[in-house]
Design a binder for these strands. Structure first.
Lengths: 178, 178
DNA sequence: CTGAATTATGCAACTCTTTGCATATGTAAA
DNA sequence: TTTACATATGCAAAGAGTTGCATAATTCAG
């Protein structure tokens, strides 16, 4: 159950609320692990019950009150131990490839559009990744080790987007008819 | 529920048993969509109940009897319609990236090993993909359209493996300490 | 003939994810 | 002042996937 570990990872530095996590899971770590707010709030409660997090109710003026969670020492140890476990690769499941197996004259125009959409969203994400790299990783060699790890993940994201763009450019003519 | 569609896709050409599908989901379509035999047999029964497949019991000599499923006309139409729907991109969830966010002096050696393992399995898969390309797609321009679609998917697989190999090579020194 | 492997299928429990619905407070614009 | 938006949290049902267990026929090696 890596969602729990992703959540704990997101809390390594700073105590956080479910709401903030939800937003962060749309960026940064969220590039590699998506989760809905329903999942997150549930996971936070579960993790607290397991003693891996603890929470404080924080009343706020001008906003609804919030619940701030942070890692316990046990949580930190649990996370450390998890990182040292072997990870099994869970292959991506992607509709688009299944659909490509169905390519025919009747759906080729649609599938070309899907490829374009894919390229478009890759291009957008790529430019976001570039902005992050320029802002946060301008001089990667001098970063603390953990930041380097995050940088490695970012580089994977960048490469993935670039690959998708190249691939779409390569295969669009194969699908042809435009 | 794209598993159902993946199964129907795998049956476009030939009637098939759950057992054969299970094996095929370790290759070909299975590169892009994994499923266990428990999932597959269940899905086959469900699809038959929905009228998208129909089955024949085939007694065999020298082996246990089998149940051969094939697409109904309704199933074919359903699949066609599904291909024309917009597909939402379900991002890959990958432990390894979450773990990289936890990089520290204590786990760097382990994470370097994980990267190596990843590179190794990518290299293996890549050589398998190359074999498939040479055997089945030596002259892609002359293939029927549907085969071209399959070829596009294969090219994505190839690029993905290559990307992974390049990425591991790039980031291994960043993790360093070896 | 016994035990292992292959072919062939299935149930049940559990975990994980998605989807739809729900609630409550406060701010800012129309 | 009504409406929309952002903040902040949650329940419940359904769908999808994993894991463990189970069965049964046949072949083949030892």
């Amino acid at each position: 159950m890596a969602l729990n570990h992703a959540i704990m990872t997101a809390m390594l530095d700073t105590p956080t609320t479910g709401y903030e996590l939800t937003k962060r899971f749309d960026t940064s770590l969220g590039f590699f692990w998506k989760a809905s707010h329903q999942q997150i709030y549930k996971a936070l409660r579960d993790l607290e019950q397991q003693g891996l997090l603890f929470s404080e109710d924080v009343p706020q003026a001008g906003k609804p009150d919030k619940v701030v969670y942070q890692l316990t020492e046990q949580g930190r140890q649990h996370l450390d131990a998890w990182v040292l476990q072997d990870s099994q690769v869970r292959e991506a499941k992607d509709d688009l490839f299944v659909k490509l197996y169905n390519l025919n004259a009747h759906n080729r125009a649609h599938l070309r559009q899907e490829l374009e959409k894919r390229a478009h969203s890759s291009a957008e994400k790529l430019s976001l990744y570039h902005r992050i790299r320029n802002r946060r990783f301008a001089n990667p060699a001098n970063l603390p080790l953990r930041e380097q790890g995050i940088y490695c993940a970012l580089l994977a994201g960048i490469r993935h987007c670039e690959m998708t763009l190249d691939w779409v450019e390569e295969v669009t003519p194969l699908i042809g008819d435009a």
